Computed example of a mutant assay.
Amino acid sequence: MPYATTDDGVRLYFEETGTGHPVIFVHEFAGDMRSYEPQMRHFGKRYRAVAYNARGFPPSDVPEHVSSYSQARAADDILAVLDHLGEKQAHVVGLSMGGFATLHFGLRHPDRAASLCIGGCGYGAELEKREGFKKEADIIAKTLLEGGMKAFAEKYAYGPTRVQFENKDPRGFAEFKTMLGEHSALGSANTQAGVQRERPSLYALVDEMKKLTVPTLIITGDEDWPCLLPGILMKQSIRSAALSVMPNAGHTINIEDPEEYNRRVGDFLHHVESGRWPMRDPRAISTSITGMKA
Rank of each mutant, 00 (worst) to 15 (best):
E136S: 12
C117K: 00
D83C: 08
E273L: 13
P22C: 03
A284S: 15
R73A: 08
E256D: 07
H21Y: 01
H27V: 06
D267H: 11
K88C: 01
V66W: 12
C227L: 07
Y156M: 12
S35E: 08
P215K: 08
G266S: 14
E208C: 05
V206P: 04
F29D: 04
Y156C: 03
L116M: 09
E87R: 07
M33I: 08
L233F: 00
A74N: 12
R197P: 05
K88F: 00
S286Q: 10
V62D: 02
S96G: 13
Y203S: 10
G99M: 05
G98D: 05
M1E: 13
L202E: 03
D111H: 15
M33V: 03
H271N: 05
E208N: 13
R239I: 05
L144W: 12
A72P: 01
V272Q: 08
F43A: 10
G194V: 12
I118M: 07
A75W: 01
R263E: 06
F176S: 01
G119P: 06
A284H: 10
P170I: 00
F152M: 09
R162N: 14
D257W: 00
D61R: 09
M179S: 04
T17R: 11
E198S: 12
D76W: 01
A80T: 04
E64Y: 14
V50D: 05
I285K: 14
V214T: 11
S184C: 10
I24Q: 05
V214F: 04
K135S: 06
E15N: 08
S240C: 07
I24F: 09
H21E: 13
V62S: 04
K150W: 00
I289T: 10
Q192F: 14
G94A: 06
A90D: 02
T213E: 14
V26C: 05
A185S: 10
G291H: 11
A54S: 12
G172V: 06
K210F: 01
A80H: 02
R162Y: 11
Y13P: 00
V26P: 04
E154G: 07
L186M: 12
K211W: 08
H271K: 15
A204W: 07
F152C: 02
Y69M: 05
P247A: 01
T220G: 07
Y13F: 15
S240M: 06
F173S: 02
D207L: 05
E28M: 07
R108K: 07
G291Q: 10
A49L: 05
Y123F: 15
Q192M: 15
G20A: 02
K235F: 11
K211L: 14
E64K: 15
A157W: 02
I219D: 09
T191Q: 13
E166R: 12
G181N: 06
S35T: 14
E146Y: 11
A51H: 10
V62F: 04
A113Y: 12
T191P: 04
S201F: 03
F133L: 08
E126S: 11
A241P: 06
R199F: 13
A80Q: 02
G132E: 13
I238E: 06
M97R: 11
G250H: 03
G86L: 04
T102E: 10
M149C: 06
I255V: 15
E223Y: 03
V62L: 07
D32Q: 07
Y36I: 12
L107V: 04
L145C: 03
L269Q: 03
S96T: 05
E136K: 14
